[in-house]
Design a binder for these strands. Structure first.
Lengths: 246, 246
DNA sequence: CGATCCTTTGAGCGAACTCAACTCGGGTGG
DNA sequence: CCACCCGAGTTGAGTTCGCTCAAAGGATCG
């Protein structure tokens, strides 16, 4: 079903809006790209870089992050297949943060030139990509709220909830189970908590039966209960309500 | 100098990139708009609304925020003249947060239709506006870092620093002094701190001579020192280095 | 000249942090 | 094949930063 690695991207551009025309889809599928395998914990671009291409996640998970002066890091977002985590580099020449892999990845690299040409010949696609970056911003807003306003327990539940819903939207969940190969240290960096406190809070979430998480796989026995604990309102993801899986 | 209320917006669209053509400027200045006076603490749009127009701040300050179930609120960003705080509503039909005034405002309201027509006849302007929304997102990323990784002292210093630099970029500072009619409660909502703790931390910042802030006016005697305390790196604002005032 | 909002102060409490050690599983090299 | 190592997870104990509750001073404005 996903013979072309960009099919998942096309699907994404159609979420909660009208379908693309065949000409638009074809233009995307004809984009010149380089497929690349990247190991875990590798940087794709770094803060200060001036990229000349954008990256589409084909397989694996990525995150964006900022390094702090004291050696800590703040994870800003997680990325799943279909995402274009550095789309912004098309118009913001210098990276203000880094993008790296969390797991081994397959990525598709598309030059800025090719993307500019794409939106020149298919101007309506510009709005689709623009919209993607607006959803990106909406997720950042929710993360501000998450770290600013929720306690550790809800904060972690929220991150897990979002990860699940986004994975489901691209057909990468099997019922209530999904890959979650994130370390507790990474969760700590994403939530602004210490690893010790993440550990204890996750144990509580587990003990309350909200998640079953072992060896990189996570199951959510009762999504409604997890959402409630997380104060999770999916409106900020701007998906079609119900966002059916594959 | 700013006879047309959108002149400041034009100036913004040119920051750290090439100048607009005369035709582009004219197209913007000819946008049909409604000028409106809005009192302090009024909502312009609310979470759940489906706006049909965008708002340009002409005079006064605004903020975007989310209300929480427990009655608290998280402020997501501050906005100064020249900003278009709900530009996203052009492509995300439903608001996932609210936009309100902090002070009395003069705003320019421009219909989505007019904006769509503008970028249809001047496609290059689409990229300028798109870029604005990418900078918006960059600021959100920095705010995640701020609430996630900095202690109260640095966090508050950072918010003040950003406010100053952004005001300076639109020519609204006089030397090291600027309007700062923000209440400590609002700062608390923006930083995820309690008002009591904001108060004590601000007093420390004052005591260390980093700011002089009274009756809505703030002076920064030593910007370098404040930046250092805030761990403020202006790269995320994607302004021209040095961002000269008017 | 109250009324109200904002700021400030005190005191006690609690969520989350730091430091440190121990476990466990998987990988790797002798 | 086993010893070792390393990263991830877990646990304990003590500390601290920031919170809550409560109340008292300013400022601003009909």
């Amino acid at each position: 079903m996903f013979e072309n690695p960009l099919n998942r991207l096309i699907r994404r551009l159609e979420v909660d809006t009208t379908a693309l025309s065949q000409a638009e889809k074809d233009a995307i599928l004809r984009l010149p790209m380089t497929i690349k395998e990247v190991g875990a914990d590798q940087d794709i671009v770094r803060e200060g870089d001036r990229p000349t291409q954008c990256c589409v996640v084909v397989e694996g998970f990525q995150c964006r992050y900022k390094m702090l002066l004291d050696g800590g890091r703040q994870i800003l977002s997680f990325h799943v297949p279909g995402d274009m985590p550095d789309l912004q580099s098309l118009f913001l020449s210098t990276m203000d943060h880094s993008l790296g892999t969390l797991t081994p990845n397959r990525v598709a690299l598309i030059s800025h030139d090719a993307l500019r040409e794409l939106i020149r010949v298919q101007p309506a696609l510009a709005e689709r990509f623009w919209r993607e970056s607006l959803i990106d911003a909406a997720i950042f807003r929710e993360w501000i709220t998450n770290v600013g306003s929720r306690d550790a327990y809800a904060r972690l539940a929220h991150v897990i909830c979002e990860f699940y819903v986004r994975l489901r939207a691209v057909g990468l969940t099997k019922d209530a189970t999904f890959d979650f190969p994130i370390t507790q240290t990474e969760l700590a960096d994403a939530t602004g908590l210490s690893t010790v406190h993440v550990n204890r809070s996750i144990q509580q979430i587990r003990a309350n039966g909200l998640i079953i998480w072992e060896r990189g796989a996570c199951t959510i026995p009762n999504l409604a209960a997890l959402k409630e604990a997380a104060m999770f309102e999916p409106n900020y993801l701007h998906m079609r309500e119900g966002n059916a899986a594959a």
